[in-house]
Design a protein around this nucleic acid. Structure first.
Length: 273
DNA sequence: CGTGATTGACCGAATGC
DNA sequence: GCATTCGGTCAATCACG
């Protein structure tokens, strides 16, 4: 997919005394509607692509598992160090579902139990942190260096609700240290936490594939790693999620908020006079 | 002072002999 | 069956706001 470059700024710097103000605003509104429609179409395409990838991934996993069954036990143990990755690269951020370094001997467990999911998160090369902001609040309770990977594995519990059984493990990929392999276990028994998505208290603000918008040429990147995304894999949920992401992106854009404030205050002043 | 991170110690399962 | 290894968890301690 070609790079997304959207103009989210509102061109509202119009002369208040101009008799064409309403027309200009109307044109701006039309432009934004067209932009909105275009975005919706792009998101639909993105969702379709994701579904296709997911299907291919499942097929590949099945194939590999059958082949692996024929291998010797020792060979299988060695294969635990190998990682197969399939992802969607979107500018600087990579969000992907994953087949991970775990051996296929547990594959059936994974497939039969949707409570375990794995997510790969691309991070900055200079970023050594093991924190992944996924919309939930986590408390770290341990860290270990595992045998097959020199980088430490961090253990987290969901700290939002004391009764929440969800745990996650985060470890850097052996092949690509810029990729964090996150393993989620269990299901949240509470709602999603909006606070952390927006940089709230909890984890450090790192490794977050959050939407970014530049001032000159805004680039909307989508975070597909938010918890629950890969588990549900239902189009409606995906679209709802993407819309949320877009809303967050827009409200984070200083240009957008400034323009919005200007527009509102202008309208109020117009109404008064 | 409360909350969360760090890290060494401990435990249990898996594995090898 | 026993010893060893390893992954996961606990809990004491520390740092920070």
């Amino acid at each position: 997919m070609e790079p997304t470059c959207l103009d989210t700024s509102l061109n509202l710097n119009v002369d208040p005394s101009s008799v064409h103000t309403d027309m200009v605003l109307e044109e701006e509104l039309q432009r934004l509607r067209r932009e909105n429609k275009r975005l919706t179409e792009m998101l639909t395409d993105l969702c379709d692509s994701y579904m296709v990838l997911q299907k291919q991934l499942t097929q590949l996993k099945n194939t590999n598992f059958e082949q692996d069954q024929l291998e010797s036990r020792k060979r299988k143990a060695e294969s635990e160090c190998c990682t197969n990755k399939f992802g969607v690269v979107n500018n600087n951020n990579v969000e992907c579902s994953s087949i991970t370094e775990d051996s296929f001997k547990r594959y059936k467990d994974f497939s039969s139990s949707p409570k375990v999911s794995k997510v790969l998160v691309k991070t900055e090369a200079s970023n050594n942190s093991l924190y992944v902001m996924d919309g939930y609040q986590w408390r770290k309770y341990g860290q270990k260096v595992t045998r097959d990977n020199p980088s430490p594995r961090a253990y987290f519990r969901c700290s939002f609700a004391p009764s929440c059984p969800v745990k996650k493990k985060v470890q850097r990929s052996l092949e690509d240290p810029t990729i964090l392999v996150t393993t989620y276990e269990g299901e949240h028994n509470h709602g999603h936490q909006r606070g952390e998505i927006e940089g709230g208290k909890g984890s450090s603000p790192v490794s977050s594939p959050t939407p970014t918008i530049g001032s000159a040429c805004p680039t909307v990147t989508l975070d597909l790693v938010k918890s629950g995304f890969f588990e549900t894999a239902q189009k409606s949920s995906v679209q709802q999620f993407l819309v949320q992401q877009m809303a967050t992106s827009l409200t984070r854009d200083p240009n957008f908020t400034t323009a919005l404030a200007t527009a509102i205050s202008g309208k109020i002043l117009q109404a008064k006079w």
